[in-house]
């Protein structure tokens, strides 16, 4: 089968859009982390500094999977590996 360039570019754009759906997971995860951190500060306001840094560290690690989706999208759009 033989596809022309525009078809491949269009499909790459759709694929990039689909890849960014990976952002849902980290969104949910970071929300859960922030919610629990808020509950923890409510229970023990004195430890808010420690809780904040722990929360930010966990969220930044959880963000990684979403960024993999972003990387795939950027590769599809700008490096265009599927073009012959």
């Amino acid at each position: 089968m033989d596809f022309n360039e525009n078809f491949i570019l269009g499909c790459s754009a759709i694929g990039a859009g689909l890849a960014v759906i990976a952002g849902i997971g980290p969104g949910v995860g970071q929300g859960i982390a922030a919610g629990h951190a808020a509950a923890a500060v409510g229970r023990n306001p004195g430890a808010s500094g420690d809780i904040r840094s722990t929360m930010l560290l966990g969220q930044a690690v959880a963000e990684t999977t979403g960024l993999y989706g972003l990387l795939v999208a950027i590769l599809l759009l700008f490096v265009q590996p599927l073009l012959p």
Binding site: E63, T64, L67, Y68, L70, I74
Partner: peptide, 9 residues
């Protein structure tokens, strides 16, 4: 990849 993708985004 974490550092790279964050700054790149």
């Amino acid at each position: 990849l974490r550092l790279f993708a964050n700054v790149l985004s």
